[in-house]
Design a protein around this nucleic acid. Structure first.
Length: 577
DNA sequence: CGCCCTTTGAAGTGT
DNA sequence: ACACTTCAAAGGGCG
């Protein structure tokens, strides 16, 4: 969300968030799309502190172009998705590689961890994970060949990283993909809301899935699994990977019947793909839904073997554990960025030798910002489905349930983050992301990207979160700003939300804002409120400018507004430090 | 061994 | 309504 307001993210997030966006160098990235990750890395490292961004406006035009697309109605986007789906299916049937021009990564999007994403203990080795993510289709699943990963573009080196995974003879080839093992799964009663039946997408009437109905998308037998690709396989993990993995035994229907609508069913089916659908071999965990998200506290142990052959040993529900233990740890559904990260991490790691996650994440964050709206929208949509599915699986679950499960993090710095301290403590953030000139650089340059925002309609699509439409309008002004604007915010004392979006960013932004406010007179504008609009209005009036063209309006406004509110913009002075 | 770092986003709590 | 916090993934770094 941070990024484009109207865009998908918008819905999700508050408009404000968009503001908070850090401008990390989106432009930079765009300009140098080809730039290797190493460069990114270098930037990250070297600049870790000082990252001066180019102001190239090249990206603007690009963004401007794509914005219009985003403005379309949700329906359109969904249709688009459907088109992708069909396309994927078609390609798979053709046996060709599916390369998604728009979103190459999707195919393995959720594949990422063999281990259930929601399991705290992923047992697979990183390399194995990477391998599977990228190539799992190659696992001895015969039919999967056709699916070969769309990501083919992926550097071969990646594939090389992984050792061949062998399955025990008796184990289904896909078993490894089933991250969820009984062990992890705490016995529980399946959600009452889940019923064995599924809703007919068209009629919405519950019905019992018939084998014939399931196929071709829902292969019934393990053997068939590989051969039949789910239409959404391109979109979802290739048959096997699920965010919510299923226990070895699998459910008869993964999530048996969540109230499925078309989208849900597709999601579920893809997620709990074939093997899941497959009739439970023997050791089905009948009690419940083994969901990847469910993690038994006690389980944090050995990664290894059990994952590989999860199903095999349907261990009887482990001996009674403590009360607390009994309560499975259900992980939060992954958000759009997390999904993106999972997908791209391996790639980034492969491109640069860097292994440090912190650095990689920075790169990923930048890349995330550089993604087109459409690309991001896909992840948002995916994340939305994730949440939807998650909520259906765990109706009573609340993010709050996981509070305190982790050790406390650093948060302390925030409170104390006094300007000075702050600079010291979180220097990285400040320095790195608050490049001076860039911030000010031109709202104009940023406009291009912002321009598209108007459209909010697309937001719904992009942003799964959907609070959307309503916000989008208000947000727009804010949303207009992409990263650059985020910077602007710094100039303004936009305290609020901007900072709020991220702990880290928040601290930096807040600090920066405070710093700026202290050093220079600035206009405090509550973000996400009518105040901003008022400010805009005022600014426009002040200049007596008339705008006929929406785009012109925005850009002009931004120019004016920036001038009025952010003197430093012109100077390029970085107040921050 | 286990937390930190780092990213964005969602969802929680707090004011 | 807004601000702030926590957690989600990941894996090297570090105490």
């Amino acid at each position: 969300m941070p990024q484009l307001n109207g865009g998908g993210g918008d819905d999700l997030g508050a408009n404000d968030e968009m503001i908070s966006f850090k401008d990390e160098g989106e432009q930079e990235e765009k300009i140098s799309e080809n730039v290797s990750a190493e460069r990114d890395l270098d930037d990250v490292k070297s600049s870790l502190v000082n990252e001066s961004e180019n102001n190239s406006s090249s990206s603007d035009s690009e963004q401007a172009e794509r914005r219009p697309l985003l403005t379309r109605a949700d329906t359109e986007s969904y249709e688009k998705t459907r088109d992708y789906f069909h396309e994927a299916l078609r390609r798979q049937q053709d046996g060709g590689f599916f390369k998604s021009p728009h979103y190459p990564g999707y195919p393995f999007l959720m594949i990422p961890d063999l281990t259930n994403p929601y399991l705290s203990n992923g047992s697979l080795s990183p390399s194995a994970r990477t391998y599977l993510q990228m190539k799992w289709p190659l696992l001895d699943v015969p039919g999967s060949a056709g699916l070969k990963d769309s990501r083919s573009p992926t550097p071969g080196h990646l594939s090389n990283k992984v050792p061949v995974v062998q399955h025990a003879p008796h184990v289904h080839p896909l078993t490894p993909l089933i991250t969820y093992s009984n062990e992890h799964f705490s016995p529980g009663t399946p959600p009452s809301h889940l019923s064995p039946e599924i809703l007919d997408p068209k009629t919405g009437i519950p019905r019992t899935p018939h084998p014939s109905e399931l196929s071709p998308y829902y292969p019934l037998s393990p053997g068939a699994v590989g051969s039949i690709a789910h239409p959404l396989s391109w979109f979802m993990p290739q048959q096997g990977q699920h965010m919510y993995s299923i226990p070895p035994g699998g459910f008869r229907h993964p999530y048996p019947a969540l109230a499925m609508n078309a989208s849900m069913s597709s999601l579920v089916s893809s997620r709990f793909s074939p093997h899941m659908v497959t009739p439970p071999p023997h050791s089905l965990h009948q009690t419940g839904i083994p969901h990847p998200a469910i993690v038994s506290p006690a389980i944090k142990q050995e990664p290894g073997g059990e994952h590989i052959s999860p199903s095999m040993h349907a261990k009887s529900p482990v001996p009674p554990k403590k009360e607390e233990d009994k309560k499975p740890h259900i992980k939060k559904p992954l958000n759009a960025f997390m999904l993106y990260m999972k997908e791209m991490r391996a790639k980034v790691v492969a491109e640069c030798t860097l292994k440090e996650s912190a650095a990689i994440n920075q790169i990923l964050g930048r890349r995330w910002h550089s993604l087109s709206r459409e690309e991001q929208a896909k992840y948002y949509e995916l994340a939305r489905k994730e949440r939807q599915l998650h909520s259906q699986l765990y109706p009573g679950w609340s993010a709050r349930d996981n509070y305190g499960k982790r050790k406390k993090r650093k948060r302390e710095n925030k409170p104390d983050s006094k300007p000075e301290d702050f600079s010291i403590r979180s220097k990285k953030q400040c320095v790195q992301y608050l490049p001076s000139e860039k911030m000010c650089d031109s709202p104009a340059s940023s406009h291009g990207s912002m321009l598209d925002s108007p459209a909010t309609p697309s937001a719904a699509l992009a942003s799964p979160a959907a609070p959307a439409a309503t916000h989008s309008e208000q947000a727009q002004p804010l949303s207009l700003t992409t990263k650059p604007e985020g910077r602007m915010h710094h100039h303004f004392s936009l305290a609020g939300k901007a900072s709020g979006s991220t702990s880290s960013s928040s601290s930096s932004s807040s600090s920066s804002s405070s710093a700026s406010s202290s050093s220079q007179p600035t206009i405090s504008i509550p973000i996400g409120t009518s105040a901003l609009r008022w400010a805009i209005f005022t600014a426009v009036r002040a200049t007596k400018m008339e705008f006929s063209d929406p785009r012109a309006t925005l850009s002009q406004f931004l120019s004016v507004f920036s001038i009025i509110t952010c003197p430093c913009i012109n100077t390029g002075k970085n107040e921050e430090l």
